[in-house]
Design a protein around this nucleic acid. Structure first.
Length: 168
DNA sequence: GCCAACGTTGGC
DNA sequence: GCCAACGTTGGC
Protein backbone atom coordinates (compact mmCIF):
# COMPACT_ATOMS: atom_id res chain seq x y z
CA UNK A 1 0.00 0.00 0.00
CA UNK A 2 1.56 3.27 -1.10
CA UNK A 3 -0.93 5.33 0.85
CA UNK A 4 -1.91 7.63 -1.99
CA UNK A 5 -4.00 5.37 -4.17
CA UNK A 6 -7.51 6.54 -4.93
CA UNK A 7 -10.01 4.88 -2.65
CA UNK A 8 -11.49 2.79 -5.43
CA UNK A 9 -8.34 0.90 -6.21
CA UNK A 10 -7.59 -1.73 -3.58
CA UNK A 11 -6.86 -4.76 -5.74
CA UNK A 12 -7.63 -2.57 -8.75
CA UNK A 13 -11.28 -3.47 -8.38
CA UNK A 14 -13.51 -0.85 -9.94
CA UNK A 15 -16.17 0.61 -7.69
CA UNK A 16 -18.13 2.39 -10.41
CA UNK A 17 -20.02 0.82 -13.26
CA UNK A 18 -22.21 1.40 -16.23
CA UNK A 19 -25.34 -0.64 -16.92
CA UNK A 20 -26.78 -0.68 -20.41
CA UNK A 21 -30.44 -1.22 -21.13
CA UNK A 22 -32.71 -0.88 -24.10
CA UNK A 23 -35.32 1.60 -22.87
CA UNK A 24 -38.16 -0.26 -24.55
CA UNK A 25 -37.09 -3.30 -22.56
CA UNK A 26 -36.50 -1.69 -19.15
CA UNK A 27 -36.02 2.07 -18.99
CA UNK A 28 -35.01 4.29 -16.10
CA UNK A 29 -38.65 5.35 -15.96
CA UNK A 30 -39.54 1.70 -15.42
CA UNK A 31 -37.00 1.58 -12.60
CA UNK A 32 -38.45 4.74 -11.07
CA UNK A 33 -41.89 3.13 -11.13
CA UNK A 34 -40.74 -0.16 -9.62
CA UNK A 35 -41.50 -1.00 -5.96
CA UNK A 36 -38.88 0.72 -3.77
CA UNK A 37 -37.36 1.87 -7.10
CA UNK A 38 -35.48 -1.41 -6.98
CA UNK A 39 -35.18 -4.29 -9.42
CA UNK A 40 -33.07 -7.32 -10.19
CA UNK A 41 -30.77 -6.90 -13.14
CA UNK A 42 -31.55 -10.09 -14.98
CA UNK A 43 -30.86 -11.35 -18.47
CA UNK A 44 -27.10 -10.89 -18.65
CA UNK A 45 -25.91 -13.78 -20.85
CA UNK A 46 -22.33 -12.78 -21.50
CA UNK A 47 -19.43 -14.11 -19.46
CA UNK A 48 -17.46 -10.90 -19.35
CA UNK A 49 -20.49 -8.94 -18.19
CA UNK A 50 -21.35 -11.63 -15.64
CA UNK A 51 -17.84 -11.64 -14.24
CA UNK A 52 -17.94 -7.88 -13.84
CA UNK A 53 -21.25 -8.13 -12.00
CA UNK A 54 -19.65 -10.60 -9.61
CA UNK A 55 -17.18 -7.89 -8.61
CA UNK A 56 -19.94 -5.46 -7.66
CA UNK A 57 -20.37 -4.66 -3.99
CA UNK A 58 -23.31 -3.23 -2.10
CA UNK A 59 -23.03 0.55 -2.22
CA UNK A 60 -21.21 0.68 -5.57
CA UNK A 61 -22.76 3.19 -7.92
CA UNK A 62 -23.55 2.63 -11.57
CA UNK A 63 -24.44 4.92 -14.44
CA UNK A 64 -27.64 3.94 -16.17
CA UNK A 65 -27.41 3.97 -19.95
CA UNK A 66 -30.11 3.79 -22.58
CA UNK A 67 -28.96 2.17 -25.82
CA UNK A 68 -30.54 2.23 -29.28
CA UNK A 69 -32.77 5.31 -29.70
CA UNK A 70 -31.15 8.48 -28.35
CA UNK A 71 -28.32 6.56 -26.73
CA UNK A 72 -27.47 8.42 -23.53
CA UNK A 73 -26.51 8.19 -19.88
CA UNK A 74 -29.77 8.91 -18.10
CA UNK A 75 -29.20 8.47 -14.39
CA UNK A 76 -27.54 6.93 -11.41
CA UNK A 77 -28.24 3.72 -9.51
CA UNK A 78 -26.65 1.82 -6.66
CA UNK A 79 -26.01 -1.85 -6.09
CA UNK A 80 -28.18 -3.06 -3.21
CA UNK A 81 -27.58 -6.81 -3.50
CA UNK A 82 -24.49 -8.60 -4.74
CA UNK A 83 -24.44 -11.28 -7.41
CA UNK A 84 -26.79 -14.22 -6.98
CA UNK A 85 -28.21 -16.77 -9.42
CA UNK A 86 -30.38 -15.39 -12.21
CA UNK A 87 -33.46 -17.57 -11.93
CA UNK A 88 -34.89 -16.29 -15.20
CA UNK A 89 -32.38 -18.53 -16.99
CA UNK A 90 -34.31 -21.55 -15.65
CA UNK A 91 -37.67 -20.49 -17.04
CA UNK A 92 -38.38 -21.93 -20.50
CA UNK A 93 -40.93 -19.16 -21.03
CA UNK A 94 -38.33 -16.47 -20.44
CA UNK A 95 -36.64 -14.76 -23.39
CA UNK A 96 -33.28 -15.38 -21.76
CA UNK A 97 -33.86 -19.04 -20.93
CA UNK A 98 -30.65 -21.08 -20.99
CA UNK A 99 -30.98 -24.83 -20.54
CA UNK A 100 -27.37 -25.10 -19.41
CA UNK A 101 -28.24 -23.21 -16.21
CA UNK A 102 -30.07 -25.06 -13.43
CA UNK A 103 -30.91 -24.31 -9.79
CA UNK A 104 -28.26 -26.90 -8.84
CA UNK A 105 -25.62 -25.44 -11.15
CA UNK A 106 -26.54 -21.83 -11.92
CA UNK A 107 -24.61 -20.37 -14.82
CA UNK A 108 -25.78 -16.77 -14.82
CA UNK A 109 -25.97 -14.17 -12.07
CA UNK A 110 -27.81 -10.97 -11.41
CA UNK A 111 -27.56 -8.11 -8.92
CA UNK A 112 -30.21 -5.86 -7.41
CA UNK A 113 -30.11 -2.15 -8.14
CA UNK A 114 -31.97 0.84 -6.73
CA UNK A 115 -32.48 4.17 -8.40
CA UNK A 116 -30.52 7.03 -6.89
CA UNK A 117 -31.69 9.65 -9.36
CA UNK A 118 -32.62 10.23 -12.92
CA UNK A 119 -30.57 13.04 -14.43
CA UNK A 120 -32.59 16.18 -15.20
CA UNK A 121 -31.03 16.07 -18.66
CA UNK A 122 -29.86 12.90 -20.37
CA UNK A 123 -26.24 12.98 -21.52
CA UNK A 124 -26.27 11.91 -25.18
CA UNK A 125 -23.56 9.64 -26.50
CA UNK A 126 -22.47 12.07 -29.27
CA UNK A 127 -21.93 14.76 -26.62
CA UNK A 128 -19.92 12.41 -24.42
CA UNK A 129 -17.67 11.67 -27.38
CA UNK A 130 -16.63 15.31 -27.43
CA UNK A 131 -15.48 15.32 -23.79
CA UNK A 132 -11.70 15.03 -23.64
CA UNK A 133 -11.73 13.66 -20.08
CA UNK A 134 -13.77 10.68 -21.24
CA UNK A 135 -11.43 9.55 -23.99
CA UNK A 136 -10.72 5.90 -23.34
CA UNK A 137 -14.05 5.20 -21.69
CA UNK A 138 -15.26 1.73 -22.64
CA UNK A 139 -18.67 3.05 -23.65
CA UNK A 140 -17.08 5.28 -26.29
CA UNK A 141 -14.87 2.62 -27.82
CA UNK A 142 -15.88 1.75 -31.36
CA UNK A 143 -17.75 -1.53 -31.37
CA UNK A 144 -18.28 -1.55 -27.61
CA UNK A 145 -21.16 -3.92 -26.85
CA UNK A 146 -20.57 -4.91 -23.25
CA UNK A 147 -23.77 -4.41 -21.23
CA UNK A 148 -21.94 -4.17 -17.90
CA UNK A 149 -18.86 -1.99 -17.90
CA UNK A 150 -16.36 -0.79 -15.33
CA UNK A 151 -16.05 2.99 -15.05
CA UNK A 152 -13.02 4.69 -13.53
CA UNK A 153 -13.39 7.13 -10.66
CA UNK A 154 -12.30 9.97 -12.94
CA UNK A 155 -14.77 9.07 -15.68
CA UNK A 156 -17.54 8.70 -13.13
CA UNK A 157 -16.81 12.09 -11.56
CA UNK A 158 -16.74 13.71 -14.98
CA UNK A 159 -20.13 12.25 -15.93
CA UNK A 160 -21.71 13.46 -12.70
CA UNK A 161 -20.26 16.93 -13.25
CA UNK A 162 -21.68 16.99 -16.79
CA UNK A 163 -25.06 15.94 -15.42
CA UNK A 164 -24.94 18.88 -13.00
CA UNK A 165 -23.93 21.33 -15.72
CA UNK A 166 -26.61 20.08 -18.08
CA UNK A 167 -29.40 21.08 -15.74
CA UNK A 168 -32.08 23.09 -17.54
C1' DG B 1 -32.24 -0.92 -42.71
C1' DC B 2 -27.25 -1.20 -42.94
C1' DC B 3 -23.18 -2.80 -41.30
C1' DA B 4 -19.01 -3.03 -38.15
C1' DA B 5 -17.62 -5.27 -34.18
C1' DC B 6 -17.85 -8.85 -31.29
C1' DG B 7 -18.86 -13.49 -28.87
C1' DT B 8 -20.00 -18.19 -29.61
C1' DT B 9 -20.18 -22.51 -31.98
C1' DG B 10 -18.51 -26.35 -34.23
C1' DG B 11 -15.80 -28.72 -37.89
C1' DC B 12 -11.37 -30.12 -38.58
C1' DG C 1 -6.17 -25.01 -31.00
C1' DC C 2 -7.42 -22.74 -35.23
C1' DC C 3 -10.72 -20.36 -37.73
C1' DA C 4 -14.88 -19.83 -40.67
C1' DA C 5 -19.66 -19.35 -40.13
C1' DC C 6 -23.15 -17.57 -37.68
C1' DG C 7 -26.02 -14.77 -34.51
C1' DT C 8 -26.33 -10.57 -31.84
C1' DT C 9 -25.56 -5.86 -30.44
C1' DG C 10 -26.06 -1.30 -31.21
C1' DG C 11 -24.62 3.12 -33.50
C1' DC C 12 -25.80 5.49 -37.32
Amino acid sequence: MTGNKPDNSPGNIPRHWLLKSEPNCFSIEDLAAAPDQTTFWDGVRNYQARNLMRKMRVGDQALYYHSQTNPSVVGLVEIVREAYPDHTAWDPQNDHFDSRSTPDKPLWDMVDIRLIRKFPQALPLPMLRTVADLAGMELLRKGSRLSVQPVTEAQFTTILRLAEEAKP
